[in-house]
């Protein structure tokens, strides 16, 4: 879901940055209220964890792999705000230190993956965990991948409508939602299965670890 720079109009990314900035401040306040002086080290390490979880390959038959994002796992284990801030920092780190991923796409990705993905995972899990714990974890992971994909596809899909020249030719991303939505959603619905598995197994592992004395 890496959008390079140049496909999102300033009408999109400037407001997105403004919304993100407000939520980053709010998120830091929430974290500090919970973690106090341990906020910075925890956030830094969770950022690194999120960074490397995005590198973990889920093997497919035939030797190929897909990559999960670990957002469901992060949100369920460490909370929505921690997950949102960590994912935002990963995106910033990738864009400005590793030169990988767009700086204009950053706020849209942070809101879609970091915030919407984390919240979707959290509420799916809360809603389903009484019915079936495993199903709830798996569904939370799947949703944390598919909902952000849907949002990013929508944001891309509205670009021709909000940014075109006088002749109606697109200035940024050139396809409408009727093209982007299926192209983005179908693969992510499949990759989401891997994300569900990672969330299920990872969360179980962490719960088991916490039950043992350190």
């Amino acid at each position: 879901m890496h959008i390079p720079d140049g496909f999102l109009s300033p009408q999109t990314y400037v407001p997105a940055y403004a919304v993100c900035a407000g939520l980053w401040v709010l998120g830091m306040r929430r974290l500090r209220a919970r973690l106090d002086e341990e906020t910075l080290p925890w956030l830094a390490v969770m950022t690194a964890l999120s960074f490397v979880l995005m590198m973990v390959a889920l093997p497919l038959p035939g030797g190929s792999t897909v990559h999960a994002a670990g957002i469901g796992l992060l949100a369920l284990s460490f909370g929505v705000w921690m997950s949102f801030l960590a994912v935002s920092l990963v995106l910033a780190m990738q864009a400005l230190l590793f030169g990988d991923g767009g700086i204009t796409a950053l706020p849209v990705n942070a809101l879609a993956m970091g915030l919407a993905g984390s919240m979707a995972a959290w509420w799916t899990w809360r809603g389903l965990r009484r019915t079936n714990e495993s199903l709830a974890l798996f569904a939370a992971g799947w949703v944390s991948m598919v909902l952000p994909a849907l949002l990013v596809a929508l944001v891309l899909g509205i670009q021709p409508a909000i940014a075109h020249d006088t002749a109606g030719r697109p200035l940024f991303f050139p396809f409408g939602p009727e093209v982007v939505l299926p192209a983005v959603l179908l693969p992510h619905a499949l990759v989401g299965l891997g994300e569900g598995l990672l969330t299920l197994l990872g969360h179980r592992y962490l719960t088991r670890r916490r039950a043992q004395p350190a």
């Binding site: 830094a44 390490v45 690194a48 490397v52 973990v56 920092l89």
Partner: peptide, 16 residues
């Protein structure tokens, strides 16, 4: 924040 996240990320990437 960025320094610790970055150095830890590099460590993880090497381990990966």
């Amino acid at each position: 924040l960025l320094g610790l996240a970055y150095s830890q990320a590099l460590t993880f990437r090497r381990a990966h």
